[in-house]
């Protein structure tokens, strides 16, 4: 699913690892900066000085722009800040990738979205208010939740969580953790990767592999 071969960057030297299909993996870095750098290298946003990166069996940095976007559309990534687009309302943010890549209409996914928010403990009256807002002033846990639901709607084979539980209240952290673990179990062969520098925040996450970088 993810394979890094002898990656050299300003943060990493001769970094190599492989995450197999269907596994649940924790990657623990030394700092938030390294977290972001590692994610960028994996996703093809920051070319390393040397080494090769394989994502879903494709060499990331050998792909054309178009193929790279196509590959990334098969992966779900939940960023620490939610990765939301500031000039789109919450509903438009949730629908953006699914509508762009699959052409599905928002009304067809309404029930699914409601269910996901319900899992996170958000009731329908508040949800109605939330989806019409711009993401800028929202608290970070809501931004992450929106990013998580947006990624889940695409039903990806591989999902990467970037510091998802860091700085959250224990209650919210537990709910999101439960959602991610349920999501992993929903589909055979799905791979889940948790990247963080705060090991404590993912101590309750079930994992087959723990990588310390």
């Amino acid at each position: 699913m993810i394979r890094l071969e002898n990656i050299d960057t300003e943060c990493f030297h001769a970094l190599s690892f492989e995450i197999k299909r269907g596994s649940e993996c924790k990657i623990i870095t030394r700092s938030e900066y390294e977290n972001r750098k590692l994610l960028n290298v994996i996703l093809g946003l920051e070319r390393p000085a040397s080494g090769r990166v394989f994502l879903l069996d494709k060499e990331t940095y050998a792909l054309s722009e178009k193929d790279s976007c196509r590959l990334l559309s098969r992966i779900g990534v939940v960023l620490k800040d939610g990765g939301l687009i500031s000039n789109l309302k919450v509903w438009e943010n949730i629908m953006l990738p699914v509508s762009y890549h699959t052409g599905k209409k928002p009304e067809d996914l309404e029930t699914k979205v409601k269910q996901r928010f319900n899992e996170a403990g958000i009731d329908v009256p508040y949800l109605k208010e939330l989806i019409g807002r711009l993401p800028g002033p929202l608290p970070v846990h809501e931004k992450r939740l929106i990013g998580l639901i947006r990624a889940m709607l695409m039903e990806p084979e591989l999902i990467i969580y970037d510091s998802l539980f860091e700085g959250l209240s224990p209650d919210m952290s537990d709910r999101l953790m439960q959602m991610t673990m349920n999501f992993h179990a929903e589909k055979q062969g799905r791979t889940s990767v948790y990247i963080t520098f705060d090991e404590q925040s993912i101590k309750n996450v079930r994992a087959d592999i723990i990588l310390r970088i």
Binding site: L43, L71, L72, L79, I85, P97
Partner: peptide, 25 residues
């Protein structure tokens, strides 16, 4: 200014991460 602040806030990276070419969108 709008596009510039989207670049500074890494929203263009966020678009790429969800498989959307920022120039196209």
């Amino acid at each position: 200014s709008e596009l510039g602040s989207m670049k500074v806030n890494r929203e263009t990276d966020s678009l790429r991460i969800i498989g959307i070419n920022p120039v196209d969108y």
